[in-house]
Design a protein around this nucleic acid. Structure first.
Length: 664
DNA sequence: TCGAAGACTTGGAAGAATTTTG
DNA sequence: CAAAATTCTTCCAAGTCTTCGA
């Protein structure tokens, strides 16, 4: 009895695309076992009952819940005081070496690793050295942050005069009694030095021979409007432009720019159909070709120059440790590429200036100087957040942040916390399942809806499904499912068909109990297609309910939990004795694939419109506890590099030391 | 109490780099 | 060897969930 089968033809609308190594179907027979059938490999595996709830004795340290108390935040906002301005780093000295030196002078007790030779030369650091170093750093920082080391932690931070100031400040200004322990819990760093963000180079006007045509005639555009025209010109043959919304939004915004910066030859542009961007497109193409045709040496030289330019921004010093920064390059202007049917796609994403950017940095660290003219919007010293810089993008008004790289200790710490929380769910899952099963026939509609939603979240790993606005793509998750997204088929089959995150289609035919089936029929009664299926529940209500079972439990934890526990079960079922490394890797990938299919992780196949294949990377990156993989590799003698790329090994450095017995 | 703002994780596309194939 | 295929990295959009503020 097949439950929730992905059928080949369901994976895309018009094309017969082969899902190459297996179409898996999730088979749920009872709440105690989930089965993943891999049709193509003709193998089916069952998790032994109980394996999902097996308790683990190695349980990690209980992490203190971040912000479990809600005292008023200390006033952390700073200003660009004139004396600080004087301390600004000089353009060519704002590199890691200088940052390190400063940190050493100001915090002599925070032993900053002296690597003057390597770091002073920044970009010249050899890759291998760099990696070893990063590994050492993240391990030691991680130790420091372990809950049991908190005492030491406190003593250490006590050495920093700024911490004392913050604490006193808090005690004075808030009526609430907050002990130093609590403050400590939501401080994410003590000292932080960094080089700010790297702005893209200013726009360079096209050669005068390259002009767009309007009504067949070349138009002399000023650089400001030429730049925006160029954004569109680069896309004229691409798929993103082949609908109505994109060009319409582009044209509207471009007309706005043209009003301010009209053609110098007084051409009046008001009809999009008369615009011919092909000369610009061809120019870009030939530039691309020229770049491609460069000799290997030239390419290498350019790369080195780029790394040299970026070196001061690529790392920061957090609590005395060198850490990689993630997205230090400011997003260049362009046309907004919303996914799916986004009503704002094609709109102009403006160039970000220093005046748009808030810098978050340690009080004692030199304030970086922007690499283009201008002053930062403001400089703050917020120890409770992990971002180095932020700005508001103009399309949706959302905040954007510069964070540390995935391999940093800060990110590694959160990542480990995430998986530890998922492991904690193991000891509550039975109670939770009993709870929602009992509520499936509740007389209270809200409870019955919540129970039914929980069933989908638990069994199908659906996302929570927060409410979305009119000015966003119409996508849904569990709580935002509408009647039109579920079709009932006899006997007891539910057909799910909706667009999830990134407008990826979720199509699944699922056999359910008559209780679930009946519930859905009731929830759909007297409603139209556009009505909410679960109109008596919300994501925040659902999360509040989950929180009563386990502190910090939310819907998303179920995804992490399900992915990791099922994956581990799949791996442990295969006896790999005497198999070649290649066969073992194939087994691993098959299990990974089953998870990716359950989670509906897909990517489009280049060239073939609307056709998708299973993507393994997302689950590996976000949902599968890396310690499962490390332990499996050790136990089965498979080099980790066969499974994790360099950047994943870096990201998961916190997980490398588990032994082969380790269990999720 | 509730909508908006804020902070962080999750996600696919595109481009770059590397490996395989012919 | 080149080009095709595959894998990895970068980019930045789109989620989740918490906190803020009226």
């Amino acid at each position: 009895m097949i439950f929730g089968a992905f059928e080949k033809q369901d994976l895309d609308l018009n094309f017969d695309v082969t899902v190459r190594s297996g179409v898996a179907s999730l088979v749920a027979r009872s709440h105690d076992s989930l089965r993943v059938d891999s049709e193509a490999t003709e193998s089916s595996v069952d998790l032994p009952p109980g394996s999902r709830t097996e308790l683990d004795s190695t349980g990690g340290s209980k992490q203190k819940r971040k912000r479990s108390i809600t005292p008023r935040k200390p006033d952390i906002e700073g200003s660009i005081a004139s004396d600080k301005l004087a301390m600004k780093m000089e353009e060519d000295s704002s590199d890691a070496g200088v940052l390190l030196q400063q940190m050493n002078e100001e915090h002599p007790k925070k032993r900053v690793k002296q690597e003057s030779d390597a770091i002073a030369e920044g970009f010249k650091v050899k890759k291998e050295e760099d990696r070893d170093d990063a590994f050492l750093i993240s391990v030691s920082t991680w130790d420091r942050k372990e809950g049991k080391l908190k005492k030491e932690d406190k003593e250490e931070s006590g050495e920093d005069p700024m911490m004392d100031v913050e604490l006193e400040d808090e005690d004075l200004t808030s009526g609430m009694e907050v002990d130093a322990d609590d403050i400590d819990a939501w401080m994410r760093w003590t000292t932080l030095a960094h080089g700010g963000v790297l702005f893209p180079p200013p726009y360079e006007p096209l050669p005068s021979a390259v002009k767009m045509l309007y009504n067949g005639q070349p138009v002399d555009l000023p650089p400001e409007s030429e730049e925006v025209a160029g954004f569109y010109a680069a896309l004229i043959y691409s798929d993103v432009v082949q609908d109505h919304i994109f060009p319409t939004n582009f044209f509207e915004d471009w007309l706005g720019v043209l009003q301010k910066y009209p053609p110098r030859d007084d051409t009046k542009i008001d009809n999009f159909d008369l615009c011919d961007f092909r000369p610009m497109f061809e120019h870009f193409e030939s530039e691309k070709a020229a770049k491609k045709a460069m000799s290997a040496d030239e390419k290498k030289e350019m790369k080195t120059a780029k790394e040299y330019l970026e070196a001061p921004y690529a790392i920061c010093i957090l609590d005395g440790m060198k850490e990689k920064v993630g997205n230090f390059r400011v997003e260049p202007p362009g046309l907004f590429r919303g996914r799916g049917n986004h009503p704002k796609k094609g709109k102009l994403k403006l160039r970000v200036r220093p005046e748009d950017i808030t810098i978050n940095i340690g009080e004692d660290s030199p304030i970086p100087v922007p690499n283009i003219p201008g002053q930062w919007k403001k400089v703050i010293h917020d120890h409770t957040v992990t971002w180095l810089a932020s700005w508001v993008e103009n399309i949706n008004g959302h905040n954007k942040y510069v964070f540390l790289a995935p391999g940093s200790s800060l990110k590694g710490q959160s990542d480990m916390n995430k998986f530890e929380k998922a492991r904690e769910l193991k000891s509550h899952i039975d109670t939770i399942r009993k709870g929602y099963e009992a509520d499936l026939d509740s007389k209270v509609t809200a409870d019955r809806m919540r129970a039914t939603a929980m069933y989908f979240i638990d069994k199908l790993s659906l996302r929570a499904g927060n409410e979305k606005g009119e000015d966003e793509a119409d996508t849904v998750g569990c709580c935002s499912l509408r009647c039109q997204h579920l079709t009932l088929e006899t006997p007891n089959i539910i057909l799910f068909d909706f667009l999830g995150q990134d407008s990826i289609r979720y199509f699944n035919r699922v056999q359910v109990s008559s209780q679930i089936y009946g519930n859905i029929r009731i929830f759909k009664e007297n409603k139209v297609d556009e009505d909410l299926l679960f109109d008596h529940i919300t994501t925040s209500g659902l999360n509040r309910y989950l929180g009563t079972y386990m502190a910090g439990l939310t819907v998303k934890v179920f995804r992490t939990y399900n992915a990791s526990i099922i994956f581990q079960g799949l791996l442990s079922e295969r006896n790999l004795d005497g198999r070649s490394v290649e066969e073992k890797v194939n087994t691993y990938n098959a299990a990974n694939r089953d998870i990716a299919i359950l989670f509906n992780h897909r990517r489009s196949v280049p060239g073939q419109a609307d056709s998708h294949e299973v993507a393994l990377g997302t689950s590996k990156m976000n949902y599968l506890d890396p310690r499962i993989t490390v332990a499996w590799c050790k136990a089965s003698d498979v080099p980790l590099e066969k499974i994790f790329s360099k950047s994943l090994i870096d990201k998961f450095s916190w997980a490398m030391s588990v032994d082969e017995e380790w269990q999720f």
